[in-house]
């Protein structure tokens, strides 16, 4: 496999997140329903955190955040085996009746999002659920589409998209491995 090539560097990632934050506020921030961001463990949590910070800086809006570890809602225990539970699940109490935006780093098959929707339903009933992803790499196996996308890139099966965040990896950026067309 060829060496990973950069898709977004730290600057471009920052710009992309700013644009996503603006879109989140524009589409879901108005009205009397609270806006809630829920990140999917792991890197979705840091990205949700980042988006909430940008929204606070630009709009002065405090957005409650949560985290979902969807491991126990996956559909592949039998084929893949048990995975370690990497992070906490912690859903803010404002979820009920909210505009809830699920945040993840990469959207691929859609199975993680399916699991996240199931898990979220066990915590409450948002008025509306939207999906924001930093990278949409194509390859869906379920009828699931994002509402807000940072960057779209076509990466075939076998390729990899890796998102790095300062909090966990010491640096920001997105790299792609395997034949890709932007």
């Amino acid at each position: 496999m060829p060496a990973p090539r950069p898709l977004l560097d730290a600057k471009a990632m920052e710009r992309t997140l700013k644009r996503m934050a603006d879109q989140i506020v524009e589409l879901y921030g108005g009205g009397d329903r609270p806006l809630v961001l829920v990140g999917i463990q792991r890197r979705g949590v840091q990205l949700a955190n980042r988006l909430a910070r940008i929204i606070k800086e630009h709009e002065g809006l405090d957005v409650p955040q949560g985290a979902l570890d969807i491991t126990l809602y996956r559909d592949d225990l039998q084929t893949v085996g048990p995975r370690p539970l990497v992070g906490a699940t912690d859903v803010p109490w404002q979820l009920e009746g909210s505009n809830c935006v699920i945040v993840d780093d990469v959207l691929y098959t859609g199975r993680t999002v399916r699991a996240a929707l199931d898990e979220l339903a066990d915590f409450g009933r948002p008025a509306r659920i939207a999906l924001a992803v930093l990278v949409d790499r194509g390859g869906r196996e379920l009828p699931i589409q994002p509402d807000i996308v940072g960057k779209t890139v076509d990466v075939p099966r076998g390729g990899r998209v890796d998102v790095q965040v300062v909090e966990l990896d010491g640096t920001d950026g997105v790299t792609v491995q395997g034949g890709a067309t932007a």
Binding site: D76, V80, G81, P82, V106, T112
Partner: peptide, 18 residues
């Protein structure tokens, strides 16, 4: 135990089925 049968886990590919 329920998922921990290595002989059944041939499809294990790390965390890339998102």
């Amino acid at each position: 135990l329920a998922g921990g049968r290595p002989e059944l886990a041939t499809a294990a590919q790390g965390g890339d089925s998102r």
